[in-house]
């Protein structure tokens, strides 16, 4: 017993001493500065992970960047308190977050990295829902619909008089925020009586196994589950960005006709960190390795936008192109970035 106790005591104190020394050496040298820390949106994560992986391979003498998933809001919280170098965001920075960064003296460079589309999906056996309008989505998903709009023919009279079962992203996700803002008109406002899950595969399962289901999902999940889900073209009722119902695809997302359910994804780079050469090389890979975006299931921006973003980053242009108003549904990136110059 005694020997065992002493062994445990030694092991613990040994570990504690080791830690102490390490901290001292890290504080003395510049060791921790080499590590690039990225955190934020789980939607942007696959892109940041892929770029970090390739960066690690290309730069064996720099530690591979670390990427966390604390959500867009959680990422900005850490970013604005100076804990991380780069924040992944599935929406533009919000006024409250701009304020938090300003208070802490953290300046940021906004870098668009990809498009993400949200798809409205139904079961392959569903023969009636061949199109849907944004107004219908609003009628179906708004908070007032709870307990009232329960049948397909309440959404559109020509649809059958059968139950409708709804599936959607969890209420803490950026996907949910964006879908509600684009359809209902108010971020985070929707009916509560739908099957929600933070795990999008649950939504895939749900819609794929229920003839009467309707759900929304990131486009990447539809790609990976071809044949199990049917995409529904969305009509936004505006003629100037493509007439009629538009089917989501890389093409329609990129040319701005699949509206309002497509959005740009960003990384926000700390102005201070942007002076470090390894960060510059890392951010450069977001522009040069755009093939990675496609590989992980997202949609590449146009070459012009990447070029504009590269110019902005090189000039250390701080601030957001979205003004103080947060995200703007239906505005193309090109317009915004060009307006900024």
């Amino acid at each position: 017993m005694l020997r065992f106790g002493i062994a445990v005591a030694f092991a613990t104190s040994g570990a504690a001493c080791g830690g102490g020394n390490n901290q001292a050496s890290q504080e003395g040298g510049e060791a921790p500065a080499v590590l690039i820390t990225v955190d934020g949106s789980s939607t942007v994560f696959p892109i940041a992970e892929a770029v970090a992986e390739e960066f690690g391979k290309a730069n064996p003498n720099v530690r591979t960047p670390t990427v966390g998933i604390s959500g867009t809001g959680g990422g900005f919280q850490k970013f604005c308190s100076g804990e991380i170098d780069i924040s992944n965001a599935s929406r533009p920075i919000r006024p409250s977050e701009i304020e938090a960064c300003r208070k802490a003296g953290v300046e940021y460079i906004e870098v668009p990295v990809a498009y993400d589309g949200l798809a409205v999906v139904v079961n392959p056996k569903n023969s009636w829902a061949t199109t849907v309008t944004v107004a219908e989505l609003k009628r179906l998903w708004s908070p007032e619909a709870q307990g009232k709009v329960m049948r397909w023919n309440q959404v559109r009279p020509s649809w059958p008089n059968r139950d409708i079962r709804l599936f959607g992203a969890g209420v803490d996700s950026g996907t949910y925020d964006y879908f509600t803002e684009a359809t209902v008109g108010k971020e985070g406002a929707s009916r509560g009586d739908f099957t929600s899950s933070e795990d999008d595969n649950v939504i895939v399962q749900g819609v794929a196994s229920d003839e009467l289901a309707l759900g929304f999902l990131p486009l990447a999940y539809v790609e990976a589950n071809r044949g199990r889900l049917t995409l529904v073209p969305v009509e936004d009722g505006k003629a100037d960005n493509g007439e009629g119902p538009i089917l989501p695809s890389a093409e329609t997302v990129r040319n701005g006709t699949y509206q309002p359910l497509s959005r740009p994804l960003f990384v926000y780079v700390s102005r201070k960190a942007a002076d470090r050469p390894e960060i510059q090389r890392f951010v450069e890979m977001f522009f040069s390795r755009t093939d990675l975006v496609k590989e992980v299931g997202y949609i590449e921006l146009t070459p012009q936008i990447y070029e504009l973003a590269r110019v902005h980053f090189a000039a250390r242009k701080v601030g957001t192109a979205f003004g103080e108003g947060g995200s703007q549904v239906g505005m193309t990136l090109e317009t915004l970035l060009a307006r900024e110059r």
Partner: peptide
């Protein structure tokens, strides 16, 4: 661990008590 900010993509094994 997620709420204290343990990471998701770390391409190296932790080598000290101060390592991510």
């Amino acid at each position: 661990l997620i709420s204290i900010g343990a990471l998701t993509f770390v391409a190296f094994a932790p080598d000290s008590l101060w390592s991510p």
